[in-house]
Design a protein around this nucleic acid. Structure first.
Lengths: 216, 216
DNA sequence: AAAGATATAAGGCAAATGTCGTATTCTATT
DNA sequence: AATAGAATACGACATTTGCCTTATATCTTT
């Protein structure tokens, strides 16, 4: 079975990189590539005999989200996998809303990309585990996309996120310490650091802010 | 690194099957198995030093969804992967809402199960492509699975709701008192009463419960 | 008018929390 | 090998919180 693919990315080097990755597999044939959405749309008008599109998000003229929406509107049979460097909640959420069939990151290795494409063609969705987790969180805690909240990047350590998670359940210092097999002192120190990073001064505020930023 | 695992399934034959699958990997150690949720809960009370739980959904006494919710409430550090035969939207949606970290089907092969567990431990979510697609659809088209939520009637007074609203912003007793032009004692009494009505014992729990019941 | 719920307020006590400072170990990354 | 960041841990302190009792005033509903 031959899989007809198109690649859309404003960075021609990255297009080459993807082509390279897929060159290992002889059932994949790259039909064409485009540097932005409108270029793709033009090509599709000519010939939309495609199985799957690998789509970047950040592009000039017509970005990946808008393009996905339009392609899905006109050619619903074409699967679209977002292939991008960014995995922030907004992008993921919007891509899914636009109708994307998968969401992968550019650093993906050839086999996973290949597998993901086939999974998508077989009626599944391709996404790596970290993206999957984000979709779960989005389902649990639908963020208000229309609220372009503080885009200040908050970077908590893995351990801090764990502690925050426990905090959000209303557990006390001592219980959290037991759960994570830590000294209560350590838990308190972690929380102290979390407060500083989030610039808050209480459990509730921390949990609230963390939820708003989809950290937990 | 040793991964401490528990398996919960009402079918002891299927427990054996899962054990068999995981026996190939020597960094996995099955700590214990249970035939239903309450059996697991009892064991966890004794020792909750676990990394991951593989949980069936359809079980007598206490099903996988309810169990997941309770385990996550008390021991948020334990990852839970649903391992079930059914993949209908309700189950998936409810499992995610309950806090599941992954959702796999029982016919999974050993390597994928193993990989999924490690992905989950590394901060991702384990799910096979068909489940992933369903979550995407749920995100696109939020089914209002009319939460047959505890219909236990919670009736807070108008004043109590006002106080709760302030509580949810992370304000302290004294600040709330000032905002509502009340004595701090009164605010504390209100909160005491709110706790009794909601059957909780802390600000966070109260806010959480109130949000779940659409009170605030 | 009586009864029952609601709102107001105080005092006290134990436990939990928020904020300091300090210090050791572990682990990536240069 | 050196350094930075993260994780671990303790002690001290003032404040806040959770829980209890008691008490008066107000407002509803029978």
């Amino acid at each position: 079975m031959n899989v007809k693919v198109a690649i859309v990315d404003d960075n021609s080097f990255l297009i080459s990189a993807v082509k390279e990755k897929l060159s290992f597999f002889d059932d994949i044939s790259i039909k064409h590539t485009s540097l932005n959405g409108s270029e793709l749309l033009t090509k599709l008008e000519d010939n939309h005999n495609l199985d799957i599109i690998l789509m970047d998000i950040e592009m000039p003229v017509l970005n990946g989200i808008e393009t996905t929406q339009m392609v899905k509107q006109k050619y619903p049979h074409i699967k679209i996998i977002m292939l991008t460097a960014f995995d922030n909640d907004e992008n993921i959420f919007n891509a899914i809303k636009a109708g994307a069939d998968g969401y992968l990151l550019k650093e993906i290795n050839p086999k996973d990309l290949y597998d993901g494409m086939h999974e998508t063609l077989n009626g599944g969705a391709a996404m790596n585990p970290s993206i999957a987790l984000k979709t779960l969180k989005l389902l649990r805690n639908p963020i208000d996309i229309n609220n372009p909240r503080d885009h200040e990047e908050i970077s908590l350590s893995k351990r801090e996120v764990e502690v925050l998670e426990q905090l959000s359940k209303g557990l006390s210092y001592t219980v959290i310490a037991k759960n994570l097999i830590l000294s209560p002192s350590t838990v308190r120190k972690h929380i102290e650091n979390i407060y500083k990073k989030l610039q808050v001064h209480s459990k509730i505020e921390a949990v609230q802010k963390a939820k708003n930023h989809n950290i937990i």
